[in-house]
C-alpha cells in the first residue's frame, strides 16, 4: 500500500484500543457489577463477590482471549511472510491439529481429572510431536513446498487419529466433551492457565519478532535472502519453531480457534503495508483485539452459548471466500 501509515502510531492506537476493549470485556457478563470498585477492591486485596468475579473469572478469560488472539495473529503474519503467500494460515504446519489431538487423547483417557494442567499439557506435547514429525518429513535441507506438504500430511494424520479417538469414545458424554473442547473456547479458565501458557507464547513471539529482518529480506526470494546473509535453512526452522510455540500453546489452552491467523494480517495490511516485519507486531495486537471482541460477542449472544471457535470460523470462512476471489487472478 502506498498510503501505509507509520508503524509506531498504528501500534500505539492498537494498544489504546486493546486497553479499552479489555475494560469493556471486564464489564460484560451475566451479572451487573461496579467495575471500578471491583478492580480497586481487588488491587487492595479485598475479597468481595464483585472483585472475585472480575479478577478471577472475567480477567483470566479476557487475558486468554488476548494472548491466544495475539499469538495466532502474529503466527499468521509470520507464516504468510515466510511462505510469501497471503493465503497461508499458521494451521497448515499441522501444529494446531496435533495439539488438538494431544488434548483429545487426554480427554479420552480421562486424564483431565488428574489436574487442570493435564489438558493443556497434552496439547503442548501434541504440538511438540508435530514439529519433530515435520522436521523428520521435510528434512533439514527441504524446500518450502516439502515443508507445507509435511505439515499437510501431519495435520491429515492428526485429523484421522482424532476421528479414531472420537469413534472409540467410551461414552456419548466423553465424545461430546472432546467435540466441545475442539470447538475452541476461553470460557471457564483460570489464572493458572494463563500462567501455564504465557512462557511458551512469549518465547514463540520473541522468536518470530526477531526474525523480522529475515522475513523482510525474504520478500526478494530465498536465493537473494541467502546472499544477503540470511541462511534460509537456519531461519526456516527458527520460524517453524516460533510458529509452533505460538500456535501449539494457543491451541492447548483454547482448542482450535480458526481463521484468526489468516484474517488479521489482511486487516492490518491497509494500515501498515505489506512488509512482514511491520505486519507482525500489528497483527499480534490486532489479533488480541479481535479475539477479545469475538469473546465478548459470544457472551452477549442470547440463547445457547456459542463456542468462540465457532464464531471465528463463521466470521473467518466467508472472509476466506472474499480473499480467494480477490487473489484468484494471481493464481493464473
Amino acid at each position: 500500500m502506498r498510503t501505509a501509515l507509520r508503524i509506531l502510531p498504528v501500534l500505539m492506537a492498537l494498544l489504546v484500543l486493546l486497553a479499552a476493549v479489555l475494560l469493556w470485556a471486564l464489564d460484560q457478563g451475566p451479572m451487573e457489577l461496579p467495575l471500578w470498585q471491583a478492580l480497586a477492591a481487588g488491587l487492595r486485596g479485598e475479597q468481595s463477590l464483585a472483585s472475585i468475579i472480575v479478577w478471577e473469572v472475567r480477567l483470566p478469560r479476557a487475558l486468554l482471549a488476548m494472548l491466544v488472539g495475539a499469538a495466532l495473529g502474529l503466527a499468521g503474519a509470520a507464516m504468510q511472510g515466510f511462505l510469501r503467500n497471503p493465503l497461508a494460515d499458521p494451521g497448515i504446519l499441522g501444529v494446531s491439529g496435533s495439539a488438538a489431538l494431544g488434548a483429545v487423547l487426554v480427554l479420552y483417557f480421562g486424564l483431565s481429572h488428574v489436574g487442570w494442567y493435564v489438558l493443556p499439557l497434552g496439547g503442548l506435547l501434541g504440538a511438540l510431536v508435530s514439529v519433530l514429525l515435520i522436521l523428520l518429513l521435510a528434512g533439514r535441507g527441504g524446500s518450502d513446498i516439502a515443508l507445507v506438504l509435511a505439515g499437510l500430511a501431519v495435520s491429515s494424520f492428526a485429523a484421522a487419529l482424532i476421528a479414531l479417538t472420537l469413534n472409540l469414545a467410551k461414552s456419548p458424554y466423553a465424545m461430546s466433551e472432546m467435540v466441545h473442547w475442539m470447538l475452541g473456547s476461553v470460557a471457564n479458565r483460570s489464572m493458572l492457565h494463563v500462567q501455564m501458557v504465557w512462557p511458551f507464547l512469549l518465547l514463540g513471539s520473541v522468536m518470530l519478532l526477531v526474525g523480522w529482518r529475515y522475513l523482510d529480506v525474504l520478500t526478494l526470494g530465498n536465493e537473494t535472502a541467502h546472499a544477503m546473509g540470511y541462511d534460509p535453512q537456519r531461519w526456516r526452522w527458527w520460524l517453524v519453531c516460533g510458529i509452533a510455540l505460538c500456535v501449539g500453546a494457543a491451541v492447548s489452552v483454547s482448542g482450535a480457534i480458526g481463521f484468526v491467523g489468516l484474517m488479521v494480517p489482511h486487516l492490518m495490511r491497509p494500515l501498515v503495508g505489506f512488509r512482514p516485519g511491520a505486519l507482525m507486531p500489528a497483527s499480534a495486537l490486532a489479533g488480541a483485539v479481535l479475539l477479545l471482541l469475538a469473546d465478548v460477542l459470544v457472551q452477549a449472544l442470547p440463547g445457547k452459548p456459542l463456542q468462540l471457535g465457532v464464531v471465528t470460523a463463521l466470521l473467518g470462512a466467508p472472509f476466506f471466500f472474499y480473499l480467494i476471489i480477490h487473489h484468484r487472478r494471481h493464481f493464473s
Binding site: M1, R84, T219, L220, M228, F274
Partner: peptide, 19 residues
C-alpha cells in the same frame, strides 16, 4: 529476481542496507 509483496522501490532498495 522478483518481489513477493507490493513494497515501494525505495523500501526494496533500502533492504540492501540491512546486512
Amino acid at each position: 529476481s522478483d518481489a513477493a509483496w507490493p513494497v515501494t522501490v525505495r523500501y526494496l532498495v533500502g533492504l540492501g542496507r540491512l546486512p
